[in-house]
Design a protein around this nucleic acid. Structure first.
Length: 275
DNA sequence: CATTACCTGCAA
DNA sequence: TTGCAGGTAATG
């Protein structure tokens, strides 16, 4: 599913609609395995009556800041979506978590593949979630120098490193391929082997593709929707991802698809030099 | 580092 | 029917 741009839009479109509202109850939790902590019955009991004070995003987690010091953390994984509905809306069979607000509206966590997760965290739990994740690539502190430090001494291929949430948070399969295309770097290049100018290009590429996707409301391949149910349009602007067999927009060579780190990987064999 | 598992739906 | 999908965790 969703990577940083989609999660940011999901969080913002949800948060701005429900900030200030109070959760009346959990109306449905028919896939209890999605609740990682606390136990499902406690999760349900603690959520009732909580007011939404604010919202945010950390890595690919949506964070709803609640009163009494709780944070509801939601991860959409591959196929999740969070939508807000009027009182009369009915959840379908793929809606595994439904919250009722005191004003009558409903929030549906829809997730065909059931990979999505929810956690209700206290301050300690939130700090642990934060500590488990790496640099936020759109933050001011994510400089070229910082990226260079992160790549230093790492023999791993650059693509799996970009996908490692404990190193850089929020990049997934789409934006890893797009950032590497942007920077003209082959996905199998050992991270520590990148030259200073390549690191600078990668830094630029990461930020450019994420910002462009944010501007386009994220990418919708199949399931992604924001909390109004709207699709993103960034999938119309891919240069490499999902473009196997089509021309590289930069040099005209045919984009190829391989498997790197067990993920489908798209790149230009001419622009992105072989390791 | 690679493989498998977790799930369902859809295209090849 | 098989393989693949935007993610991650648990295994050899």
């Amino acid at each position: 599913m969703p990577e940083l741009p989609e999660v940011q839009h999901a969080a913002d479109s949800l948060g701005m609609q429900i900030v200030g509202a109070r959760i009346a109850c959990v109306e449905r939790l028919d896939w209890p395995r999605m609740v990682e902590t606390p136990a499902p019955d406690e999760f349900i009991a603690l959520l009732a009556g909580r007011q939404v004070r604010g919202w945010g995003r950390r890595a690919k987690w949506i964070l709803l800041d609640l009163d009494d010091g709780w944070t509801l953390a939601l991860h959409l994984r591959m196929s999740g979506s969070l939508t807000v509905h009027p009182a009369n809306a009915e959840p379908d069979r793929h809606t595994h978590l439904a919250l009722r607000l005191e004003d009558g509206r409903r929030i549906f966590f829809h997730d065909t593949r059931k990979f999505g997760r929810a956690r209700l965290l206290d301050a300690t739990g939130l700090a642990a979630l934060d500590a488990a994740h790496g640099a936020e690539p759109l933050s001011e502190t994510f400089t070229v120098e910082h990226l260079a430090e992160l790549l230093q001494n790492r023999k791993r291929a650059i693509k799996p490193l970009l996908l490692d949430q404990s190193v850089i948070a929020g990049i997934g399969n789409i934006y890893a391929d797009e950032a590497l295309w942007h920077a003209r770097i082959h996905p199998l290049r050992p991270a520590a082997d990148l030259s200073a100018s390549e690191v600078a290009a990668l830094h630029d590429g990461i930020r450019a593709v994420l910002r462009q996707a944010l501007a386009n409301g994220g990418s919708t391949l199949r399931d992604y929707r924001n909390s109004y149910g709207a699709r993103g349009t960034n999938q119309d602007h891919f240069n490499a991802y999902d473009r196997a067999g089509r021309p590289c927009p930069r040099c005209g060579a045919t984009i190829v698809k391989t498997v790197v780190a067990q993920r489908g990987t798209h790149y230009c064999p001419i622009c992105q030099t072989i390791p």
